[in-house]
Design a binder for these strands. Sequence first.
RNA 1: CGGGGCGUAGCGCAGCCUGGUUAGCGCGCCUGCCUUGGGAGCAGGAGGUCGUAGGUUCGAAUCCUACCGCCCCGACCA
Length: 570
Amino acid sequence: MRYSQILLPTLKENPAEAEVVSHRLMLRAGFMRKLTSGIYTYLPFGLAAIRKVERIVREEMNRAGAQELALPMVQPADLWIETGRYEKYGPELLRFKDRHNRESCLGPTHEEVITDLVRREIHSYRDLPVNLYQIQTKFRDEIRPRFGLMRGREFLMKDAYSFDVSDEMAEVSYRKMYEAYKRIFTRCGLEFRAVEADSGTIGGSFSHEFMVLAKTGEDTIVVCKNCDYAANMEKAAVRPPSAPAAVDMLEMTKVETPGKRKVEAVCEFLNIEPADLVKTLVYIADGLPVAVLVRGDRDVQEVKLKNLLGVADVALADDKQVFDTTGVPTGYLGPRGITIKIVADLEVAVMRNFVVGANEKNFHLKNVNMDRDFTVEAVADLRQITPDDPCPSCNGRLELTEGIEVGHVFKLGTKYSEAMQAVFQDSDGLEKPFVMGCYGIGITRVVAAAIEQNHDQNGIVFPVPLAPFQAIILNLDLKDAAISRAAEDLYQSLQDLGVETLLDDRDERPGSKFKDADLLGIPFRIMIGKRFSKDGVVEVRRRRDGFTEEVSIDHLPGILQARIAAEISG
RNA sequence: CGGGGCGUAGCGCAGCCUGGUUAGCGCGCCUGCCUUGGGAGCAGGAGGUCGUAGGUUCGAAUCCUACCGCCCCGACCA
């Protein structure tokens, strides 16, 4: 491609709308332009990067035995009503009526449509297993789209669905996808981790998320420095604490703590540590209040709470809600004597002689012990794991890092097939529901994540497998006939070798060309200018580390081709 | 939806508080000269319903009201 002909509008300045680095660089590098909130037009350069990801995904999906198809984007409400998700999915599902007044929606995901297809077309165990996938634009009416392609409303996704005769076979399908995903992200040249994840509203028995490691990630993940344990913070199980300390239970006493509401204030006043105190937090769970007990220096992990209670939604109550449901002002709340449901973190059960609120303004209780002084409805792992906790799997040291979720694999089971009566006949002639799995990759998000992970002050630093062009040739003096001829010849021979090349043949000064080449992040920059006129050599500069070498123009195509091949297979 | 911010040329911004000629600046764009190894210089030029609608006023980018849009934080999130 010739730079003089491609629509590649780069920006010198940072667009005001972009906050995170990938968003900023994608706008500056002429990747895309915003049409409206969360919806972008992909320009040629950006689309080329997207196609690179798509291609890798396709190859690996096909290799893993999945078949590509294309499902409709507009879907009838009927299907969603069958699974009950028409109500449950919420406002993220964009609903509308067609001209005949039929309820319809834009597909945010395709479990219903694929299950409908399979129940119509597959009736025998002989035709199983099957794994079908598509790469398609999804629409989710996100509450708050942000960070450009990281959380858009319209985005490209690869979604695959597997159908199996049994749980065991479904696990095999799941495993295959898990392996395929590892290959995909490795081939993309990304640093990532597969982590245990919460399966969320989609349901199912277990799931893994694939996280690209980057500081700007929206999720926090926990990885073990010792073994291969890795989990989403929401899911990371805290090791059950050892048996209670062999300390005698002391007599409970009420103490005055005037105006001391915050944990730190109470601790300072009573001369204790936050670890000696149990805080009582009121959550509103699907409309009902629940008191949650955790050690004073711990945080409640809301997803764990949600799962324990089996509710769709939990939110910390505000001061008014706390008072309305317990009759106690915040800061003095405790488990002894309140009437709402109480649940406690595992740690609370082994603590001895701790401090809690007295359910009376300006008073706390000392030397409180669970079961002796109050009872709870459930004891469970409810707190956020910390880097000081041991690895749940091997007891080793943990580390927290930020990650961007680019893929998610789920074992769904029969949730959808049962709801939609999608059944096949097994070898005994019995009707059974398909055992399903589903597997997503956010294609456009992969591109954004790749940039989050690979950039510097000057712009994008594309991993070779994802770069829209592998090389850029800078013609540094258009008026010099020899230089221009050499640039053209080189452009031709690189293309003949299959090297994807952009020829900067614009009538611009060298400085501008250098800046743009850096911004675009093309892995290899070939400069033809003064050094060529003088010594007949061209310079090759590697974007990643700035390593530059002079090469005779005749040798360049072969050398470059080998370099690129090495980076792509490695 | 709650909180905060912003809407003035393609992009980034000033002007608004304290209303008053022809609405500015930098970048980009066009023409010419000149220059050519890290976003040059000079000269000339094009480009604006000041988000929209209404109001106040002799007069509104500027003051008031409503609406629309966008961004950030939160809730939310295969």
